[in-house]
């Protein structure tokens, strides 16, 4: 589904990703872990098409298409979804208008009929229950005045409504209490169940979320590179031992080079 090859990315002239290689197959769940500042969020954002990040070399193929050549909206229409670490507040646009516009723009791109108000409402109602979104939040402006947990829940709600192929979760677990965490995980698992080919990349600092969204692979990102990959046990190991041993190992390898 997604193939990242030797990806180098700079932000404001500073190199953040230094040769990322990642293969994600249909239906897989990958977790990307790593200490703060390792480049996890950069990876998620660059895949979604954030423009202040410069790709200096490498390639990203998504479903046979060169992802890096696509605009952010076309990436979304092709099936890439980023759940933001810090969802943006947009006063003056209701959640409903925002999502209806998004759903229909994506449908238009795929050559599907536009959903009318009734059909859209039915779709929303269905998904709202899953993530426990209150009706009132739907008519409120996008994320405005939402608590941290409500914002994250809204991201997952959008994920289930827009139904992409690949979900990138950028620290969706940060700042969530255990109940909110379960709701979010529940939403992600529902998204997985919506299509057997749907894939998920969970970017996280902590192992906690991975109790509920069980990864097939865990990668450790450090200093702009994936320095270790393994099964879900790697996440447990990181939880137990922290990130220091990774840092030590790699300082060593850096100096050898």
């Amino acid at each position: 589904m997604l193939s990242v090859k030797d990806l180098y990315v700079s932000v404001e002239g500073k190199e953040i990703l230094k040769g990322i290689n990642l293969e994600i197959k249909k239906g897989e769940i990958h977790a990307i872990m790593g200490p703060n500042g390792s480049g996890k969020s950069t990876l998620a954002n660059v895949l979604a098409g954030r423009q202040d990040y410069q790709v200096t070399s490498g390639e990203v193929i998504f479903e046979g298409k060169n992802l890096l050549e696509l605009s952010p909206e076309d990436r979304a229409r092709e099936g890439v979804f980023l759940a933001f670490q810090y969802p943006v507040e947009i006063p003056g646009i209701s959640n409903a208008t925002f999502l209806k516009t998004a759903v229909n723009e994506i449908r238009k791109y795929k050559g599907l009929e536009q959903l009318d108000a009734m059909e859209f409402l039915a779709l929303m109602k269905d998904k709202m229950q899953v993530v426990g979104m209150e009706q009132s939040l739907i008519s409120r402006p996008v994320n405005q005045g939402f608590s941290g947990g409500e914002k994250k829940r809204n991201e997952i709600f959008q994920l289930t409504v827009l139904d992409p192929k690949l979900a990138l979760l950028d620290e969706t677990d940060s700042g969530l209490d255990i109940d909110a965490l379960k709701i979010v995980a529940n939403g992600v698992n529902l998204f997985k169940a919506q299509g057997k080919d749907n894939a998920v990349v969970v970017v996280t600092h902590y192992q906690r979320l991975l109790d509920y969204i069980v990864p097939d692979f865990v990668h450790v990102l450090y200093n702009g590179r994936i320095v270790k990959s393994g099964s879900k046990n790697l996440a447990l190991e990181l939880e137990e031992k922290g990130y220091d041993w990774i840092k030590e190992e790699n300082q060593f390898s850096d100096s050898v080079k």
Binding site: Q51, P72, E73, R75, I90, A102
Partner: peptide, 9 residues
Amino acid sequence: FYLRSRGIG
């Protein structure tokens, strides 16, 4: 960017 990342042109 937020709107575009949801497929809105």
